[in-house]
Structure formats: C-alpha cells, structure tokens
Computed example of a mutant assay.
Amino acid sequence: MRFPWGTSDVVDLPTVGTRIDTFTDPAHVEGGPGARLQVARRQAQAFRREFPGTGTPDSITTCDLVTLPYPTRFGLFRASRALAPFLSITNRMLVIRWRDSDGRRRILLFEPSDVELGRYTPYFDNLSQHTPAVIERRMVREHGTVLDHLSRLGIAREEVDYLMFDHLHTQDLRRWIGTTAHQDDLGTTPTAIFPNAKVVVQQDELAAMAELHPLQKPWYQPATYRDVPAEAFLPIDGSIVLGPGVAVVKTPGHVFGNQSLVVNTATGIWVSSENVIATEALTPEHSRLPGLARWARQWQQEIVLNANTIETTADQYNSIILEKTLADRSQSDSRFLQFFPSSELTGMWTNPGTRPTFSHGHITHGPQL
C-alpha cells in the first residue's frame, strides 16, 4: 500500500488550530508506563483548569448513524462475564458549530462515518459473510446517513469546514473528500461531497497507515486512501484548540495516532472517543454489567478499555485516565462522567448481559434545530 504522499510529506502539509503545550508526548516522558500515567493525570488536571477559558461552541448536535454487533471480548476487554459473544454499539456523529475570533462560522463533523462503505472493513466484511442474513438484519440497524442528518439540520455540504475521527478504523473517505482517479468499485471518480472540508488527523496515524502492522490490518481500508488528495488532510502532531470550547487531544494507544474530542458546554467538559464503549467503563465500580465491578476491584483497574486492537495497551490505559480526569460528572447521575463514546454500548435483547447501567445517548448544547 502506498499513499499519494510519503511519510515526510505529511509533516509538510498545512495544519490548523492553536497547539496545546500542556500535554507531553508519552514517548518523551522519562520512565516507564507507570511514570507516564502520573504525568497524564497531572497534565489533564492542568488542562481542565485552562480549557473553560477558551469559551464554548455555539451548538453541539448528536446524530445516530448505525447500531451494529461488536465482540464482547473486544468492547469490554477481559472484564465481562456476559454469556453473549456479541454486544451492540451505536455509532453517532456530532455536529459542532462555533464562530472564530473574526466572526467566521465553522462546522466540524466528528465521526461522520460513511456507513455504506465502512462495511467493507476486513473484520466486518468477514463477519457479515459468515452471518445468516436473517440474523444480520436483526443485529444491524441504520438510523440515518450523514447527508440525511445535515439536510435535517439545514447545513449545506459546502458549509462543512472539518471532518474528524478519533481514528480511521473502518473509515472510507473517498466520497467525502473525492479522489484523483477512477474507482473501479464505485464506478466513478468521486467528486468531493464536502469540497471545503479538511480531515483533522494525527500525523502518527497517517504514517502508520502507509505500512500497516498485521495487528492493524483487519480494521483499516488502506486501499481506499490510494487516490485521495493529500491536500484534503490537516495532519496535527499532538493536541490543539480548534475553536472556542473545542479541542483535539492526542490519546495514543487504541491506535498510534488516536485522538479525542474535548468540548466545553453548558454542563461542563465532555470527552468523546472510542477508547471505551460505555461511560461506566471509566467508573466500573458503579457498573451492573456482569463482571465489570468485580474485575476492576480484583485487578485494581480503574477503567475497562475497548481492546479490538492492542497496539500499545499501557498507553491506551493512560490515555483513558487522561480522558477520565478531563471529563466532568454527569448532571443526571454523578457516579458517571460526561464521557460520550463515539460508539456507545446499546442494550439489545439479542445480547443478554450487555445492557449498560447508564447511557448518554446524546450531547445537547446550544440551539437544537
């Protein structure tokens, strides 16, 4: 697999936002993962004090995309004692709007997955081929497409400034940002649906995708990036403030270039990523999911991570602690945090023992259309 740019070219692409100097790359922290964990806590506490001063966005709207099956042993790591081999997760997109200091309106789509093309991710494609159609229809529920939701919200495609994912697992961006050559499987040379949008992504992830490790291959679609235009990306190295109350924080571990969305709202700070699939995974002592509280107590684990890929597990654990430290308490149940999983655990009768104790379902901030 080769991208239309080399690894060195990624560094030279234009970027965006104001760099956050509070956070230190784990690779630059002296000592082992335990030392990095303590640094992550301190830095998150410092950023929690600073971040509200950046302001708040105008609005945040949650849009459901799809509910689909996911292996329990991945989503709840080694903690779950549920009999069900699969649980269900709901993928959601966040639409975030704000004004820059010069008054210009901005729109960020966080997790705008092209669900139709995402199905061809090797892992999910293989799962679909080995699942009877009648069962698949019961376990996969589509709620609305990215374009349907934007139409409902009155947002034109040309108005979208940024596309962002916590990582690029399953993502096929060809229809969103266009390609420079004919795509045989699509039967066309796609013109960008979002012609003015740039993809905010960590340099580390683009570099890793240029030559995937075998552990990564089931979850990426690298061939779909062969003909996408390099100028559609805004690679960043670390953490940035993108707008008032909108930050991108590097949280490596689930993938090398993982990143989390952090937003300041009327109810305080929210964090969103797929590092865990349920907010109770950050406070498992309060979970009624079979096995979680006992496992956390027995092994002195503060969190239960989402572990479909274990690229650097200790770093992922530390990143989740950073997220846990940043997020405010939920106003509806203070046992849980304002952590919004980009793929949230969803109870279904087909998956006994996997119904979450607590769910957010959505983030609401500002006017809702």
Rank of each mutant, 00 (worst) to 15 (best):
226 R>T: 14
142 E>T: 14
25 D>V: 05
190 P>R: 13
180 T>S: 14
218 P>V: 01
58 D>S: 15
216 Q>P: 01
124 F>R: 09
251 T>P: 09
217 K>I: 03
91 N>F: 03
141 R>D: 09
56 T>M: 15
333 D>N: 15
47 F>I: 13
189 T>A: 13
365 H>S: 03
146 V>H: 04
108 L>E: 12
28 H>V: 09
347 G>V: 03
193 I>F: 04
317 Y>R: 13
284 P>T: 12
336 F>M: 03
345 L>D: 05
183 Q>G: 02
181 A>M: 09
319 S>L: 08
235 P>V: 02
156 A>V: 06
171 Q>C: 13
243 G>C: 06
287 S>F: 06
105 R>C: 09
281 A>G: 05
264 N>C: 14
178 G>E: 11
61 T>G: 01
276 V>A: 02
187 G>C: 05
276 V>R: 02
282 L>D: 02
236 I>N: 06
189 T>W: 11
36 R>V: 13
94 L>I: 06
31 G>L: 12
57 P>G: 14
248 V>N: 11
200 V>G: 00
214 P>G: 03
86 F>Q: 04
201 V>Y: 07
24 T>F: 10
133 A>D: 02
228 V>W: 01
341 P>V: 10
246 V>F: 10
320 I>S: 10
117 L>A: 12
84 A>H: 00
343 S>Y: 13
320 I>P: 01
60 I>T: 06
128 S>K: 07
282 L>F: 02
180 T>H: 13
198 K>D: 07
176 W>I: 06
199 V>Q: 10
244 P>T: 11
61 T>S: 03
77 F>R: 00
33 P>I: 12
105 R>S: 15
31 G>P: 11
240 I>Y: 08
38 Q>F: 14
318 N>M: 12
194 F>A: 12
249 V>K: 05
